[in-house]
Design a protein around this nucleic acid. Structure first.
Lengths: 144, 144
DNA sequence: CCGTATCCGACATGATACTG
DNA sequence: CAGTATCATGTCGGATACGG
């Protein structure tokens, strides 16, 4: 395929209205960023997935999520709590016992996360192949 | 009783753990990370959303996505290309003309992104409120 | 127009030690 | 057990300048 065509560009030119929550693109922050930042960070999704299996204590989470440091687990779980996605409960026993569970809002997110996870699995092979193909075609040119 | 609890908008709804795409929870890295890293980074989603409206040239993307630097647009679009989510076409004109469009795989991701965007919009208010409530209840204690 | 190449600061994350 | 505090560091992303 040698695309020599400089004529009219094919396809629609407008962003579908249902995908443009900002109204205008010159307004970068429109709410979706907040959620995406949470979804995107290294550990939140793993915490959500783990909590989807039911309430967990701090140490249970840490053991379940391989590689997470105490500090990052604390931060992650605090941010999720702050956003109202996770409910933190402290039992005044000795030693203290704390458990975490998804709120209704958080549980709703799990459906999306689940869809994302399924999509990932479905396309994992294709993506891996695309990557190696790209790397083969562009030697020495590292992106990542 | 009266366990001290903070945060959370509604009562927790336990979700059955059919979410584990890895088979085992002690093995959290199973491909979903790759996709999440792409979803999670600052610009990929915005590029995908923009391309959902049809093919775009480099400058069009940059103008549409407010705040993105040339460097980051290049990197973002290259990574998406490498993953086989975006197709890059170079027309040998002078000056060069390049356009980007979603591949079939990339278009599939659009649906998920769209779902995520809708979820964000729906819960934006609740999240914002949860945050300010948290911040009110925990003064001086910043998480972000 | 469409990039690439550098430099650099800010922030996220990790390691470690300490507390209630 | 469930954190907090502190320090070190690696990466991300922005600004800028240059090149095809």
């Amino acid at each position: 395929m040698s695309p020599t065509h400089t004529g009219g560009t094919a396809g629609a030119t407008a962003v579908p209205a249902d995908l443009d929550p900002c109204g205008r693109e010159d307004h970068p922050d429109c709410g979706i960023r907040d959620v995406l930042d949470r979804i995107g960070d290294k550990w939140s999704v793993l915490v959500i997935v783990e909590l989807a299996g039911g309430p967990r204590r701090f140490r249970e989470l840490q053991r379940a999520i391989d590689g997470i440091s105490q500090r990052m687990l604390t931060l992650t779980v605090r941010r999720l709590e702050r956003d109202g996605l996770v409910l933190r409960t402290v039992y005044p026993t000795v030693p203290a016992r704390v458990d975490y569970r998804l709120t209704g809002t958080g549980a709703g997110l799990t459906h999306l996360v689940k869809a994302l996870a399924e999509w990932s699995l479905t396309h994992r092979a294709a993506i891996a192949e695309a990557r190696s193909r790209y790397d083969r075609a562009h030697p020495g040119h590292d992106i990542r």
